[in-house]
């Protein structure tokens, strides 16, 4: 396991083995082996781009759905959480402390699809006692990336300081 590689990839997953080797001081082969091993161990799960879907007309709509769940004897919340996670419409599932038990991020093509999914699939699922759906109106920051600011370098071209 190599934390430095993980940190670098979490910032920019496009980094090549060559670049990672320059930064970490390992050989390219060592970097590749580390990445392969960490993928096999399930530490690295996927590498995806952060996309500002709002820039597109036919992007996605998302909703945060808070669920209250009756824990199943012997399984707690696991059973419901895992079932919810199986749906293609579900982007993330988290177990929460506080008023709600699970928070589910649902991603669909439009509002109707989200409401249909929540009412037909989640609300009626055994163990789920209530749902509270909150639509995402606008995204400002996602996975450490600010979405509403354009980079604007106001520094000069050259300076001696």
């Amino acid at each position: 396991m190599n934390i430095q590689i993980l940190k670098l990839l979490s910032k920019d997953a496009r980094m090549s083995a060559k670049e990672l080797s320059v930064i970490t001081g390992l050989t390219e082969e060592e970097v590749e082996t580390e990445i392969k091993d960490m993928t096999k161990e399930g530490l690295i799960r996927a590498c995806k781009a952060v996309i500002d879907w709002e820039k597109l007309d036919d992007g996605y709509v998302s909703a945060l759905v808070d669920l209250k769940v009756t824990p199943k004897p012997g399984y707690g919340f696991e059973d419901v959480a895992k079932k919810v996670a199986r749906y293609k419409e579900v982007e993330s599932v988290y177990l929460l402390s506080g008023v709600s038990d699970l928070c589910v991020i649902v991603k669909c093509r439009n509002f109707q699809e989200v409401s249909r999914f929540v009412s037909k699939e989640l609300a009626v699922m055994e163990g789920i006692t209530s749902t509270k759906t909150q639509f995402v109106m606008r995204r400002y920051k996602e996975l450490d990336v600010a979405l509403d600011v354009e980079s604007n370098d106001e520094r000069g071209v050259v300076s001696s300081c």
């Binding site: 520094r155 071209v157 300076s159």
Partner: peptide, 26 residues
């Protein structure tokens, strides 16, 4: 005045320059 001012002035007026010339944090 600094001797390389001339070079700085040319660089400052050029467009589509990709610079590694600035000494302040981004």
């Amino acid at each position: 005045p600094s001797g390389i001012r001339k070079f700085f002035d040319i660089a400052a007026t050029m467009e589509d320059v990709i610079s590694l010339g600035v000494g302040e944090p981004d």
